[in-house]
Amino acid sequence: MNDALHLHYFVDGDDFTRAGEASANVKKTLRQIGVSPDAIRRVAIVLYEGEINMVIHANGGVIDVDIAPDQITMVLKDTGKGIADIELAMKEGYSTAPEEVRSLGFGAGMGLSNMKKYSDEMKIESTVNVGTTVTMKVNLS
């Protein structure tokens, strides 16, 4: 684990049954390079939540993952409808998920709080009708 490793993913906005592929792939990579199970679990969960949000709320987007020896940085960028009130969106239980995804088990309004809880740093930048960029970092030591 000397050099930083960069991974890039395109997230399809139509197919949330396939969402989770970036998360699964990053998880596999981290396992191969010997990252601790706890850090892998946290990275996989925050990425999955972010990926699902891009599919359900923003019509897809791109994910960039930087793996450095001491830290994993994930940037999830979409050009969706944006988040008008980030503080409100962060509240546990707040969700605008449509009925058809609720029937699949999404829409608890817990995704963003999970991302905050399991990452060491999280930043959301969003402009209504322009898009949302979520940056999360997980420390490896």
Binding site: G105, A108, M110
Partner: peptide
């Protein structure tokens, strides 16, 4: 049955009981 609650609160090793039957259940 709500997937994000499971990801936020279930402990590794737990037995997870749910009526939610789809491939996202397995991913979670």
């Amino acid at each position: 049955d709500l997937l994000s609650i499971v990801m936020g609160k279930a402990k590794a090793g737990a037995v997870w009981i749910t009526v939610m039957c789809n491939i996202n259940t397995i991913a979670v």
